[in-house]
Design a binder for these strands. Structure first.
Lengths: 411, 411
DNA sequence: TCACGTTTGTTAGTAAAGCTTACGAACAAA
DNA sequence: TTTGTTCGTAAGCTTTACTAACAAACGTGA
């Protein structure tokens, strides 16, 4: 048998677009995308699914690129003007897109009619349950701008009382806006499953609390609930446009949110990102609330850092350098834990979220340093570690992104 | 404005199937799937893309469930009998599927015509470049069975000479089978980009070697090249049916392959899984070839372990326990590096690949122990660490899976 | 000024894909 | 023999996105 004859009858390229995978909602497929490899096919695809994907694509294009003509969208998406017109007509009928009148600038040809996502059409309610003393909430517009805020003191409330506080907060926020609300997004501490059930949140005394159902039943709006750090990384992903992203959230506890290949990582037990109680190094460390010694949280959590700093004598000659050293040590510990993760995932970007006065200085620098010396420089050359761009509002904004993404397929 | 009026005009469920994402090749979308969250839509979807997905779905169904009737496939996929008949007709015309005659068992109704993937129609050539002294190759059938083997001694060849050896090996394997070959899969050490260019493989003296093009040009068959550990984890994924999987490959070096959410992780610099040179612990360690101290590879690589074991006095009274301790220490070190990764990704399954006489005993047990004590037991309760089920042939079989997956969308 | 080219958005018709409906064939059980 | 079941196929419909063609509206250059 000649080489010629042995050649597979199957076309050289294999199945069309095999190996491509850019799916989104509910699937995807740009022929030129090459990063991911083929997967097991799961579930049929009907024409209407393709339609809803293309619809989301149009929304996404408008959302990120702003006002433009139908023809512009057609060029950008690769769909034809006819198809775009058709999809846009539907979106206008649904009130998601509006016509803005004709384009001003003078060009040859028929003047374009500008269209855009109707950014004033909806608000989103975002809730952040990650703080220790209070719940934060905000009404967020479609661009991620905070329209109004509200908060409620916890006063030690746990269990059902805490759930009631969340509902109260949401009720106040809903009352504060006249604009239709697209949905409610909640970032909760603890382990949250994909259906919005808080499996476990020790601080709040929650076990298997179906927050999604509770809020949905009361407010009859779409509700999305996820872990606070996992929510936070969505906010960062929205602005960073990086496909792989790790966000470390330092507060009363330490948690992480992870996006890989543009996709949030949930974890088999829905506990991805829970690195607070991973033991750091091989030389012991402070005793942690969980009983172990040298957990990341025992090194890095805000209460521990402030306690250490407060114990310093501010009059001492070396007060400043002692402060630096405390923060640098915490940063090194963070670097030690992150190094294997950064190495294994070949991450290109890590984001720190938390009090900038603690994180953004000696701590940050020590973490970078430790990461560089503990991983292979050659592979992680372009690793970036930076502070969040969202300041205090990462979780609130991330909750909004989660709703946006879940309801419109946009982020 | 009443709550009623404020309610979003957008349907409660958001866009159809938003939040669902089960895409495969080139996309997917089972409406009931809930794990992953919505993503940015990327790229349009045309009807023919949907078609090729459904085609792959049929192939996958037949491949994993074996011979069955068209009606069975219809029930299993959710597509109608008509559509299945149509798709199957195409697959039969392409020679990928064959009719096996009527079903034997006595049931009411018209007897079913059994169909199946024509498992004898194609062979796959798999190549494993990860060993230090020789290149391994095999002809693999569609079920992953090894049909024939070949190997070539490296004799210190590097650079282009090594590429020639790969081609020689492939040529011999191709000559050994009369069956049409679906494609060539190669697992190479080092950093390999998604186009099959070996960016860097120090052992082989390769920098930016376009192995995919070299082999494709010579043999005119589909060629897929990837990192050896990343290839190996594909083999394991094929049998384990776990959505999250980490495989640690211990040989002359130490590397890992990672599948998250059913998807191989490549990494921003295509170096995902390169954990061999991550520093372990905070107490120094043996000097590594890379210059650092205490790299995982310096603790765990096979040459280092065998050297340590060989240095033992076999006559000593405590020889056995000394041996155990050496392996246990290596296991602990592995556990220390894996703990942050397991915690951050909430992995449910970790697989060890390498010499069983070294890995499958004290080393394994120490790793499990270390993982348990260094992560949060509550979250990683059902973590499993096990030896590979594929023995020596992980890379060869994984290379076959890669071709199968890339060419047919099946795995 | 006016013909010409360009750009936009729409209309009309076509091709592809999967659906529903309907039917003949083949079998088991009554 | 009758009845009910199952299989695979044929015909026609619906959805979707495409191509082709066109009118409207604009700048440009002779």
């Amino acid at each position: 048998m000649t080489t010629e004859a042995r050649r597979s009858q199957v076309s050289e390229g294999g199945i069309p677009n095999a190996g491509a995978d850019v799916l989104t909602v509910p699937f995807g497929g740009a022929p030129m995308f090459t990063r991911a490899r083929a997967l097991r096919p799961t579930g049929k695809v009907l024409p209407e699914h393709a339609r809803s994907h293309n619809r989301a694509l149009v929304l996404q294009t408008l959302y990120t690129s702003g006002a433009q003509s139908r023809a512009d969208v057609a060029r950008q998406t690769g769909l034809t003007r006819v198809t775009i017109s058709d999809l846009v007509a539907g979106l206008i009928a649904e009130g998601l897109v509006i016509e803005l009148g004709q384009r001003e600038d003078a060009r040859p040809g028929k003047p374009a009619t500008l269209i855009d996502v109707d950014r004033a059409a909806f608000h989103i309610v975002g809730v952040d349950l990650s703080e220790h003393q209070r719940f934060l909430g905000a009404v967020v517009d479609l661009d991620g701008g905070i329209v109004s805020r509200a908060e409620v003191a916890l006063d030690g409330a746990t269990g059902d009382a805490a759930v009631v506080l969340v509902a109260d907060l949401v009720r106040r926020l809903l009352a504060s806006t006249e604009t239709p609300v697209l949905g409610i997004g909640v970032g909760s501490p603890g382990v949250v499953d994909p259906l919005g059930v808080v499996r476990s949140a020790p601080n709040l005394g929650w076990t298997d609390v179906d927050l999604q159902a509770r809020l949905h039943d009361e407010f009859e709006l779409p509700v999305h609930v996820a872990n606070d750090a996992n929510v936070a990384v969505l906010a960062e992903h929205g602005s960073s446009h990086q496909d792989d992203l790790l966000l470390v959230k330092v507060g009363h506890g330490v948690g992480a949110g992870l996006i890989i290949g543009g996709r949030p990582v949930i974890g088999g037990g829905f506990a991805a990102g829970e690195i607070g109680h991973v033991v750091v190094g091989t030389d012991g460390g402070p005793r942690c609330a969980c009983g172990k010694h040298g957990c990341l949280e025992a090194w890095l959590a805000v209460p521990r850092l402030t306690a250490q700093l407060d114990a310093l004598d501010p009059e001492a000659a070396d007060a400043a350098s002692a402060r630096e050293e405390i923060l640098a040590e915490a940063g090194r510990r963070l670097g030690i834990v992150l190094a294997p993760v950064v190495g294994a995932l070949n991450l290109s970007e890590v984001v720190l979220s938390g009090p900038a006065e603690l994180l953004d200085g000696a701590l940050h620098d020590a973490t970078v340093d430790t990461l560089r010396t503990r991983t292979m420089a050659e592979h992680n050359r372009d690793l970036r570690l930076r502070m969040t761009e969202q300041a205090e509002d990462v979780v609130l904004r991330g909750a909004a992104v989660m709703v946006l993404s879940g309801q419109l397929g946009v982020s």
